[in-house]
Simulated scan of single mutants.
Amino acid sequence: MIVLHAVFPLDPDKRDEALDLIAELAEKSRAEPGMIEYRPTTDVDDPNVVRFFERYEDEAAFEAHSKTDHFQAFEAALPDLLAGEPEVTRFEIESADELEL
């Protein structure tokens, strides 16, 4: 499984535009084959920061996502929407277990 955690600091003046694009990206991404979870959220400490949590079945699903029209459009628009450098961390997971709380 491939897991990504991405952090995007949004330009406050372009926040609404960015959130609209992110909502569209998320909806289309969740429908992709091999997508386990695609969850963008706003940070509770800073509403101008969006964090993405993404889980893919495998490398092929991750690569396919990066080639979709909706991802390409988002990636092209992203530089004009940011207030700083994004941070993206990729994890390759061999196993994962759900914990009971």
Rank of each mutant, 00 (worst) to 15 (best):
Ser29His: 07
Lys67Thr: 09
Leu81Ser: 05
Phe91Cys: 03
Ala96Tyr: 12
Glu24Asn: 12
Pro86Ala: 09
Pro33Arg: 02
Asp20Gln: 14
His70Val: 08
Asp58Glu: 09
Pro33Leu: 06
Ala60Phe: 04
Ala26Lys: 15
Val3Ser: 13
Lys14Arg: 15
Phe62Cys: 01
Val88Gly: 02
Met1Asn: 00
Asp20Thr: 15
Phe74Trp: 06
Gln72Ile: 15
Ile22Cys: 07
Glu37Asn: 14
Pro9Glu: 02
Lys28Val: 07
Glu32Ile: 03
Pro12Lys: 09
Ala18Gly: 04
Asp80His: 10
Glu63Met: 03
Glu63Gln: 02
Ala77Phe: 05
Ala96Val: 09
Glu54Pro: 05
Glu59Gln: 13
Pro12His: 06
Ala23Ser: 11
Glu37Tyr: 13
Leu82Thr: 12
Leu81Asp: 06
Gly34Glu: 00
Ala60Asp: 01
Leu82Phe: 10
Ala23Lys: 08
Tyr56Met: 01
Ile93Val: 14
Glu98Ala: 10
Ala64Ser: 00
Ile2Lys: 05
Pro12Arg: 11
Leu81Gly: 08
Leu99Phe: 12
Pro86Tyr: 07
Ala31Val: 10
Ala31Ile: 11
Asp16Thr: 14
Asp16Pro: 04
Glu27Gln: 13
Pro40Ala: 00
Glu27Pro: 06
Val88Trp: 03
Phe52Ala: 06
Thr42Met: 02
Glu32Trp: 02
Ser66Phe: 08
Pro47Thr: 08
Ala96Phe: 10
Val7Thr: 15
Phe91Ile: 02
Ile93His: 02
Ala6Pro: 07
Ala77Pro: 05
Glu32Val: 00
Ala31Trp: 04
Pro86His: 04
Arg55Lys: 14
Arg39Asn: 12
Glu27Thr: 11
Lys14Cys: 13
Pro12Asp: 02
Ala18Phe: 00
Asp80Lys: 08
Glu57Tyr: 05
